[in-house]
Design a protein around this nucleic acid. Sequence first.
DNA 1: GAATAAAAACAATCATTCCTGTTTGTAAAG
DNA 2: CTTTACAAACAGGAATGATTGTTTTTATTC
Lengths: 249, 249
Amino acid sequence: MSNADKTKPEARGGQASLPRTATRQRLQSRRNSSSEPKYAPKRTQAERSEATQTQLIEAAVKLVRANGLRGLRTVEVAELAGVSRGALLHHFKSKHDLLVAVIRHVNEVSLVESARRAHLAQNSGNDPIEGIIKDAQDFYFGDYFFIELAIAMSADSDSRILKRETYRNSRTSRFSVEAAWLEALMSSGVPKQLASDILSLTLSVVRGYSVRTLIEKDPEQFSRLLKVWRDIVRQHLQTAMANDQKNRG
Amino acid sequence: MSNADKTKPEARGGQASLPRTATRQRLQSRRNSSSEPKYAPKRTQAERSEATQTQLIEAAVKLVRANGLRGLRTVEVAELAGVSRGALLHHFKSKHDLLVAVIRHVNEVSLVESARRAHLAQNSGNDPIEGIIKDAQDFYFGDYFFIELAIAMSADSDSRILKRETYRNSRTSRFSVEAAWLEALMSSGVPKQLASDILSLTLSVVRGYSVRTLIEKDPEQFSRLLKVWRDIVRQHLQTAMANDQKNRG
DNA sequence: GAATAAAAACAATCATTCCTGTTTGTAAAG
DNA sequence: CTTTACAAACAGGAATGATTGTTTTTATTC
């Protein structure tokens, strides 16, 4: 492949490079002051640890979204996080471990969202379509979906493990949200099978459009399209339910 | 990363073996007509060349679909094609060149399909929805789309070049098909804006479902879902056009 | 028309460049 | 003063492209 993009300059110029000597002297003199070594540490170990771990994970998330799973390089993660590769390997003893942490992280975030959304679904009243569309938009344009997709699109043995991990998580988080929306639709009077189909179709529309934006930049208004979609679905549900009641009555 | 997946066996066992004998005889007779060398070449240079190039490209297509753009390894391409890496580098002087050839190839295939489909669109009669769905299925589950997606999902400097190449091609091939479908919808009486929306939505549904199958294996029947979608659209178009005529009359 | 030179299609080996994980070293926190 | 957080240098493997060698086809010359 081409070697055109060697971004070597300022490789670690822009960040870190803390004042080592100064810090040392300051601490030393303070300690010399008397029997009390109680200088105030700026951050506790746990805080430092968690902070850089979060930075690393978030950097990894960005890079996986940008370059795909197999395009991820540890050196880039470290650079973007503003630490050395040594630090990365200290917190995650292998690249694989980092990826597992990444998945766990986006999944946790997604899980919290899920709970919120499931709650929304229950209070969506008689017309949940709007809520479903909003939910789908948030999900399919978010980190979790793109990382899931990136994992799905590489088939080496490593990503197979990750795939299983992700799949388990999907069933516990995303699954419950969709079940909640299904409930919402049904309790607004839509028959189960139709509700399931409408839900699947709506999710596919949004998923499909999200992927489209990956390939080419939004030349048409997604919001308008979604409005049309919402109208179509509402109309269909109305007539379908009308027919349903006629058949019963 | 792990080294668990070495697929060495049958490295050159199972594939290729084009009709050599037929070719040989044809060539022999051709040469008999004029000056006759003492041995008959099995295949002409151009034939050999084209054959292995095709094998290499097709192998690369499969591997990009399986492992993504950045998961592609030249050694695997050569193995799957049944030739040495030396041969690969002889025909394509770099991995990048191979990838360009891959894109050209899938695009050519797609272009031929496009012409066929555009023709279908023009003869789709009064109800083009069925045809649109079929077309979308063929396209979004085919090689071209997945390779386009694989390219879109990696953002290094190399794939940016490929992206441009692909984008140009899209506009000449896929674009015309969609325009033809739009025409078909309009000539069956659907207003332009609505026709465009319906087309976009249908494409998104299929695209979205195709991507879904990447992530998890089809637990529900896509065909049933498409049937529902077709019904919804038909119904909507009927009422929309009825309203349209009422407003006009 | 046979001998032979030339070129193209491959194969095999080598060198270089990444990328990962290990090791060793240093500063900060407990 | 022990442990933890980080940094820097190193070692080994993998992947690419270059080089060299071998076979097959094509062109040339007698």
